[in-house]
Design a binder for these strands. Structure first.
Ligand SMILES: [Mn+2]
Ligand SMILES: [Mn+2]
Ligand SMILES: [Mn+2]
Ligand SMILES: [Mn+2]
Lengths: 236, 236
DNA sequence: GCATAGATTTAGGAAGACCGAAACCTCTGG
DNA sequence: CCAGAGGTTTCGGTCTTCCTAAATCTATGC
C-alpha cells in the first residue's frame, strides 16, 4: 500500500521530467530549485525523499534523473496538465496564455476517473494548446520531430508545432503577431552581428516578415518538411 | 494584503456553514471534528486560528458561529462545490453519488475565473444535482421552502426538492428506487410503534408505494404545495 | 447544591514542506 | 597541480496541520 504522492512531489517529478523533454541533459539541484521557485536546500532535502521512494536516481553533487517509476508518475502528471490545459481552452474559453497556472493547481486535485472522462469528452486530443504532446494513460508519448527555430539556418521552412508556455506575456505577444500553432514559418536570414532572425509568417497575401529575438527563437519549435530547396547549397 | 485561506480553513468554514443550512443550531467543536474527520483537539486549535482571522465567533466551551466575513468565504466555497458537482454530472457523465468527493478536492484548486466561466457554460444553474441551492457570486442564496420528509404528517404530498448527499450508498439506492429530484411524493401513513413511513412515489401508472426508514426520511426534503386536502381534518 | 460524565481545551509531539547560513565538495583556470 | 568559486548539502529553525494524553470546564441528575 503506497501513499499517493503529495502535490509537491508531483511537481518535483514533473519538472525533472520536463527538463529533458526537448533536450537531454539531466537537471541539476539548482536548476530544479529555480524552476520550482524554492531554495536549493529545499531541493536537497526533497531529492533525498524522492530517492528513498524510488522515484529518482541521485548521488550527492550529481544530477537528478527519474527512475522508471518516477517517469511513470511524471507522465501521468504531464498527461493531466496538458489535458486540463486543453479543456480550459476548448471548453471554458481560456486563451492559451491563461491556462498554465490554472492547470498547475488542478493537476493535483483531479482523480484518474476525472482525467479519463475528460479525455473522452475532449475526443482524446494528442496535443495541448501549446503543441506539447499528451501522453497516453499508460505513459506513452510521441514527440513530433521538430527543431527549435533558433537552430534553423536561413532558407528552411516548416510548420510551428510547439510554442513553449513558460512565459504568458510572450504567448500574448505571439498571438497578437499571428504566430500560432500550425502556422507556416520561413527562415529568411539572420541579421549580422548576432542580430535577430528574420522570418516570414504565413503564406500568400497574409504573409509578413518579422524579427525574432533569440528568446523567442528558442521557444518556437518548427517541423521542417525537408530542408528548403533553395538552401541545399548553403548546407554543404 | 491577506493571504488566501488554506484548503483546511476553507473546509472548516464550509462545514460550519453547512451545519446551519437546514436547521439553526450552531455547530459544536466535536460535531465539527466528526464532520471533518479530525480529532477534537485539532478543532480547538483551528478554531482559535479562525477566530484570530476574524472568520468565526467563539468563546471557550461554546459553539462556533461564522462572522459575516466567515460566511462570505463559506458561501464562495459552497458555490464552488455545487457548481463543480453540477459540472461533473452534466458535462462529464458522473452519477450523483460520485460527485461529492471529487468536488471536495476540486473546490480548493479552482480559481474565481474558473468558477465564473464554468457557471457561464452551465447556464448559471440554481441547484446542484442533489437539489442544494447554488449561492450567487456575491453570496446570496435562496433556500426553497422545503421540509424533511420525516417531519411530514400522513396525507401531505409534494415534490422532492433536495436529497442529502452525505451517503453515496443511499443515493445509489434511491436512484434504483426511482426516488430522484422533482419526483412527486405522497406520505401515506406511518406504520405503528415507530415503524417506517409509507410513501407513494410518482403519479399515475408508474406510482408505487415504498417503506422509508428514518435515516432516509431525514435526508429527503419535500416542497409541499399546501397541506393535502384530505388531511385538513387531521391537522386540527 | 453539587458531583461527575462528557465535552472541550491545553500540552507535548510528529510529519511535511520550506528557509537562511554555514559547511562542504568539485572542478576548472592559472 | 591545486586553490578557490560556485554549486550542493547540512544544520537549525519556522509554519501548518494533525495526533494522543492530560487537564479542565460545564451542565445534568440526583
Ligand atoms: Mn503548461
Ligand atoms: Mn502543479
Ligand atoms: Mn474540500
Ligand atoms: Mn451536493
Amino acid at each position: 500500500m503506497k501513499s499517493q504522492p503529495s502535490s509537491s512531489i508531483e511537481d518535483y517529478v514533473k519538472v525533472i521530467y520536463s527538463f529533458t523533454e526537448w533536450q537531454d541533459k539531466p537537471i541539476t539541484s539548482s536548476q530544479l530549485a529555480a524552476r520550482l521557485g524554492v531554495a536549493n536546500s529545499s531541493v536537497s532535502e526533497m531529492v533525498r525523499k524522492l530517492k528513498d521512494q524510488g522515484l529518482v536516481d541521485h548521488r550527492p553533487y550529481g544530477a537528478v534523473r527519474l527512475t522508471p517509476e518516477g517517469e511513470r508518475l511524471a507522465l501521468t502528471m504531464v498527461r493531466r496538465h496538458r489535458l486540463l490545459e486543453t479543456f480550459l481552452v476548448q471548453e471554458l474559453g481560456y486563451s492559451w496564455d491563461e491556462v498554465h497556472d490554472e492547470a498547475e493547481q488542478l493537476e493535483h486535485a483531479v482523480s484518474d476517473t476525472f482525467v479519463e472522462r475528460l479525455a473522452e469528452k475532449l475526443g482524446h486530443p494528442e496535443r495541448d494548446p501549446h503543441g506539447d504532446p499528451i501522453p497516453s494513460p499508460n505513459g506513452r508519448v510521441e514527440h513530433p520531430p521538430a527543431l527549435p527555430l533558433g537552430s534553423l539556418d536561413p532558407g528552411h521552412e516548416g510548420l510551428i508545432t510547439r510554442i513553449s508556455d513558460d512565459d504568458p506575456e510572450m504567448l500574448r505577444y505571439l498571438a497578437r503577431e499571428h504566430i500560432v500553432l500550425d502556422t507556416t514559418i520561413h527562415v529568411v536570414r539572420r541579421k549580422p552581428f548576432g542580430g535577430p532572425l528574420v522570418i516570414r509568417i504565413g503564406a500568400g497575401s497574409t504573409a509578413h516578415e518579422f524579427d525574432v529575438p533569440d528568446t523567442i527563437a528558442s521557444s518556437l519549435w518548427v517541423h521542417t518538411e525537408a530542408p528548403h530547396e533553395g538552401c541545399t547549397l548553403e548546407q554543404v
